[in-house]
Design a protein around this nucleic acid. Structure first.
Lengths: 191, 191
DNA sequence: AAGATTATGTAGATCGGTCTAGAGAGGAAT
DNA sequence: ATTCCTCTCTAGACCGATCTACATAATCTT
């Protein structure tokens, strides 16, 4: 019966991922996670003996891998880094609006909450962000930027995306994303 | 003695401001705010009959005005928008590191937490961000950008600052801020 | 004296976490 | 093939702590 157990575990991670993205670490109660996942309390501490920290940590890691996959797909279809970033940005904006501004960056809220207070989750958040920089830098190098410039641009583009999501969610409007998108197009348009 | 009452009120706002910036809305308990402020529970509900939401809302507004003042001072001394933004960024980075990454943007954490869940605080966060855009756009116009471009650049610069702070706090490192700062210098350096 | 402010105490809910009991599937032995 | 055992997983009660909010009384200021 390893199958059913894994399904419960996956449902718990998925529920935690959604709730944590919308309301943050402290704003998400385990009771709500259990209700959304439709799982009893015992299952949670069976699958995640490390408790809330372990559950949220694995939920963040899963969200990070999901973005990796999306970026990987876009890299295969987008002709240049410019199209890659713009497609990524538009996809994030659509997702955010469709969720009633409950979705943005799945890591950012927790990252800010735990930066100075939780030594287990903070490095996980930091690691996800550095992991996202690599494919961006690769795409930029493929477009002719030298290594140092590609790294710097990758961080800058990632910061722009994160910042645009913050402003968009704060104002419940996709306009900031569209405005920064136009600027990114110019930033990456002419090499 | 209206003075002593006002001092207690100010201490409560200041304590809430610091704690909320470090740990977010849900991560900050009123008991902790009261302990830091050295105030009894009754004072809180006397000065803030609206409870936690009112206290945090006024704390955010105070933080917003504080940044307004800093930007105003920098505008008076910085020769161009480029120097203004770079000085602002460096000041934020210093403040963040000095606080052990407990400080970043005083609004961002709450903005993400409440974007889809709290109809009282969400517009306050959104309003603070739009308020910050104005002096930036003014400085950009003073440097020769036309109005539409200045608005777009102001949002982009603000997004870059916010995103850089997210990445820096997530990784407990000021390097992302320095990297984006170099890119901002190039972005605003040559008109 | 009167109003403003402080000082506690407490209510009711919810928090994360732990515990024990039992349900259910797969394998081994006969 | 059936019985039985074992182990994974589920189920839910329960714990102490903490949360926000409110009530009431004491204190201070004018």
């Amino acid at each position: 019966m390893a199958v059913k157990g894994d399904e419960t575990r996956a449902r718990l991670i998925e529920a935690a991922r959604t709730l944590v993205e919308a309301k943050g670490y402290h704003g998400t109660g385990l009771n709500e996670v259990l209700a959304v996942a439709g799982a009893p309390r015992g299952s949670l501490y069976h699958h995640f003996p490390g408790g809330k920290d372990q559950l949220v940590g694995e939920a963040l890691a899963a969200a990070g891998r999901e973005v990796d996959g999306i970026v990987g797909e876009l890299t295969a279809t987008a002709p240049t880094s410019r199209e890659l970033v713009l497609a990524l940005l538009e996809g994030l904006a659509d997702r955010m609006v469709a969720a009633g501004y409950a979705k943005g960056c799945p890591v950012a809220t927790v990252a800010l909450e735990v930066a100075s207070t939780n030594d287990h989750l903070q490095p996980i958040c930091g690691g996800i962000y550095t992991g996202w920089q690599r494919p961006l830098a690769d795409a930029l190098r493929a477009d002719g930027h030298d290594a140092a410039e590609a790294d710097e641009l990758a961080v800058t583009v990632l910061a722009l995306i994160e910042g645009a999501l913050v402003l968009a969610r704060a104002g419940r409007s996709r306009i900031p994303i569209e405005q920064t998108g136009r600027r990114i197009a110019k930033l990456l348009g002419t090499d």
